[in-house]
């Protein structure tokens, strides 16, 4: 049985005006799994993702990464995780290679592996020639690719991505799917949000659907969609409030 990498238990987030952004959420992602997290805009996806990677505080529930508490062992959990937000604003005043080396320093990537790992992903995403340029000169897609390289070069146990396919060209999207699968084959787990249900359907092993802060469906892709498409199921559970 695969090891649990991400475990979200009874997680709730209440904002200062008493608005509940997320209520009693339970999600588990195991080693080797790609887990899609889907929901409307404002459903609570980003709030959950931010709490899971330890960049946002929360009051209720427990979040564990590889068995370690995000709240109590924040630095250890972050060292096991790669996170990319929905709009990855990078440091525009440094070059691409400076950014990647900064990430390598932060995650203690061994010196003898840095160059080969950076070369592998930079060539795959076709930005190797631009690594010496300032990030401010990059297009939106190039910044997204750089952020993705920064996530993959330190071989984390858990990848948490918020809309990772936005801004990528078709070839880069294809390659991203490939390296996501490769990372999972090597024992990592991926938890990502997306609005592109076709991608989720084809790529993911498990899926969770969130609506107005509440989990309304969770399980393997086959369990959740049954004989229908993920889109049909999504519309059904979100519009009619049906729970799976």
């Amino acid at each position: 049985m695969n090891k649990i990498i991400l475990e979200i238990k009874h997680y709730s987030k209440i904002y200062s005006d008493n608005k509940k952004a997320v209520e009693d959420l339970n999600i588990t992602v195991k080693s080797g799994e790609i887990h899609a997290f889907i929901g409307h805009n404002g459903a609570g996806k980003t709030t959950t993702i931010r709490a899971a990677v330890g960049v946002m505080d929360f009051d209720q529930g427990t979040i564990l990464i590889d068995g370690h508490s995000v709240k109590k062992e924040a630095v250890l959990c972050k060292s096991l995780t790669a996170y990319i937000p929905d709009n990855p604003d990078l440091y525009e005043y440094i070059t691409g290679i400076q950014y990647l080396n900064y990430i390598c320093d932060m995650f203690s990537v061994p010196k003898n592996e840095r160059t080969s790992r950076i070369r592998k992903y930079a060539e795959l995403f076709k930005i190797a020639d631009s690594l010496g340029d300032l990030i401010s000169s990059y297009s939106h897609g190039m910044k997204q690719k750089l952020a993705l390289i920064g996530a993959f070069i330190h071989n984390p146990k858990l990848f948490v991505f918020d809309e990772p396919f936005v801004g990528l060209d078709p070839e880069a999207s294809f390659n991203l799917k490939g390296i996501m699968k490769e990372a999972c084959q090597n024992g990592s787990a991926i938890f990502f949000s997306t609005h592109v249900l076709e991608v989720a359907e084809k790529l993911c092993d498990t899926v969770s659907i969130i609506n107005s802060g509440k989990l309304i469906a969770s399980g393997t892709m086959e369990e959740v969609r049954g004989q229908h498409s993920l889109e049909d199921v999504f519309m059904e559970v979100v519009e009619n409030g049906k729970q799976i």
């Binding site: 990677v53 330890g54 960049v55 630095v75 250890l76 959990c77 972050k78 060292s79 995780t81 996170y83 937000p85 990855p88 604003d89 990078l90 440091y91 990430i103 932060m106 995650f107």
Partner: peptide, 8 residues
């Protein structure tokens, strides 16, 4: 987000 998510 970078500063908040790095393991330091």
């Amino acid at each position: 987000w970078i500063m908040c998510s790095v393991p330091v």
